[in-house]
């Protein structure tokens, strides 16, 4: 499939912070391409450089070197005024919502429109529509202090959509919310992506968030990109060490089966709930030991993986693998799994 030009391209972005205590490399030669319509997750541990990365995308932070190309424009080459105009098509939402506390919900949504010079009546009309879209049609006159965290984030989303942006940048947008509110905000983001075709970049430290809504993911660690790919690829075959740590947060490899023959079975969608394992055991007549199992829903598909310990006997082990492969499962042998 021809993807055309990426809507956002980071080309060899580095960012060095200089302070009294010396220099700190928050981003080191990072390159990424994000295409229209994607929900792109950027995941990493605290301090990995995620916020720095997203702030470079809209030039709130000027990269020390490298280029940001947004919608064909090199942001570094724009004048201050052109940059401000460009930012109107690249909205951002934050962990702490950052609403104007002295303005009502409606006035908050009108704010970016005032900045863009939209007429007051039109702005109010648009604010009303957007607040309805995010499910707060009855809270037009409420002040942020009268609303819950989830409701505040909904206002922030409505506000971010006011100027019809092409891209929505979310820096830990659900990190201050409880799990069920997080679910509803993620569902809203997905709906916005599907209905309005807005490309979304989601910064998070939670694999769950990526699994639930993202189509693509970049894993960032120690100021560098460790791994990129579709969520499905990265989730089923994490290549990097950090990737494996994120996919198996409980420190998956167990010392006890190190060195012994194990294999990892990946279930993708179709076969997740088939009794593949039990039929294999019946067919091969061998006992296996389940070392690890984890089933999740990724993008509405049942996904999962399991690690089983193979029989000592090599021919039997081979038989097990062949049997599982014949069931269209992805099976790979695991020797000494990472720690």
């Amino acid at each position: 499939m021809e993807k055309g030009q990426p809507i956002i391209a980071l080309q060899n972005i580095s960012k060095t912070y200089t302070s009294e205590r010396g220099e700190f490399n928050a981003l080191n030669n990072v390159s990424l391409e994000i295409y229209k319509g994607e929900i792109y997750g950027v995941i990493g541990m605290s301090g990995a450089g995620k916020s720095t990365l997203v702030r470079c995308i809209n030039y709130l932070e000027k990269p020390t070197s490298g280029k940001i190309i947004f919608d064909g424009k090199d942001l570094g080459a724009l004048s201050a005024k052109e940059l401000r105009n460009t930012r109107q098509s690249m909205s951002m939402i934050f962990q702490q919502f950052n609403l104007l506390m002295q303005r009502t919900a409606e006035q908050n949504v009108c704010f970016p429109l005032e900045i863009a010079g939209v007429k007051k009546i039109e702005a109010k009309q648009r604010a009303k529509e957007l607040l309805e879209l995010v499910g707060l049609g009855d809270k037009l006159d409420a002040y942020p202090s009268q609303l819950s965290g989830g409701q505040k984030q909904r206002i922030a989303i409505a506000r971010a959509l006011a100027t019809n942006p092409k891209v929505l940048l979310c820096d830990e947008a659900t990190s201050a919310l409880d799990p069920s509110t997080t679910q509803s905000i993620l569902a809203l983001l997905k709906e916005i992506n599907e209905k309005l075709g807005i490309t979304i970049v989601i910064i998070t430290h939670e694999m769950k968030v990526v699994e639930q809504v993202c189509s693509h993911v970049a894993i960032i660690a120690d100021s560098k990109i460790a791994e990129v790919g579709t969520v499905k690829e990265v989730f089923t075959h994490p290549q990097s060490k950090v990737g494996q740590q994120l996919v198996y947060p409980n420190g998956m490899p167990d010392e006890s089966f190190m060195g012994k023959r194990c294999c990892r079975i990946v279930f993708d969608g179709s076969s997740a709930y088939d009794p593949a394992l039990s039929s294999m055991i019946l067919e091969c007549q061998v006992p296996v030991n389940i070392m690890y199992a984890d089933m999740k829903r990724v993008e509405d598909m049942a996904m999962g993986q399991m690690v089983i310990q193979l029989p000592e006997d090599d021919t039997l082990a081979e038989k097990v693998i062949q049997n599982l492969r014949a069931k269209n499962l992805i099976v790979e042998e695991v020797y000494d799994y990472v720690g």
């Binding site: 105009n85 460009t86 609403l99 704010f111 100027t163």
Partner: peptide, 20 residues
């Protein structure tokens, strides 16, 4: 953060002083 939000919407320094 509020100032940063305004900057991310493309507000000018003068707009930030007056409106934020």
């Amino acid at each position: 953060g509020v100032i940063e939000a305004a900057l991310s919407m493309g507000a000018s320094p003068l707009q930030i002083i007056w409106k934020v």
